Lab assay of single mutants.
Amino acid sequence: KKVTINGVEIKFNNPEEAVKFALELAKRLNLRIEFHGDQIKIE
């Protein structure tokens, strides 16, 4: 399963991993996060 985070394609074994990764990243950098299907936007 491929997920695009800020235009960067990252391959994950499952979608939950991708979501956890994105949330952790957003929390660490104190950023806002948006989900659009397989696209995750962090700003």
Rank of each mutant, 00 (worst) to 15 (best):
K1L: 15
K1G: 10
K1N: 10
K2S: 12
K2N: 09
K2I: 15
K2T: 14
K2E: 04
K2A: 09
V3E: 04
V3R: 04
V3N: 03
V3S: 02
T4D: 03
T4Y: 13
T4L: 13
T4Q: 05
T4R: 05
I5S: 02
I5T: 02
N6Q: 08
N6F: 15
N6M: 12
N6R: 06
N6S: 05
G7M: 10
G7A: 05
G7R: 04
G7K: 07
V8F: 12
V8D: 01
V8C: 15
E9R: 07
E9C: 15
E9N: 05
E9S: 11
K11M: 14
K11N: 14
F12A: 01
F12M: 03
N13V: 07
N13Y: 09
N13E: 11
N13K: 12
N14R: 07
N14C: 13
N14Y: 10
N14D: 10
N14A: 07
P15D: 08
P15R: 13
P15E: 10
P15Q: 09
E16V: 11
E16M: 11
E16K: 07
E17I: 09
E17L: 12
E17M: 10
A18Q: 03
K20H: 05
K20F: 09
K20T: 04
F21R: 05
F21C: 15
A22K: 00
A22G: 02
A22Q: 00
E24A: 10
E24Y: 08
L25C: 11
L25A: 02
A26H: 01
K27C: 14
K27A: 12
K27Q: 08
K27F: 07
R28I: 13
R28G: 08
L29A: 03
L29P: 01
L29D: 02
L29S: 02
L31H: 01
L31R: 00
L31E: 01
R32V: 12
R32I: 12
R32Y: 10
R32L: 09
I33W: 05
I33H: 00
I33V: 12
E34W: 06
F35S: 01
F35R: 02
F35Y: 08
F35D: 01
H36N: 11
H36A: 10
G37L: 07
D38R: 02
D38L: 07
D38V: 06
D38N: 11
Q39W: 14
Q39S: 12
K41D: 02
K41T: 11
K41Y: 14
K41E: 04
K41R: 13
I42L: 13
I42A: 00
E43T: 15
E43V: 15
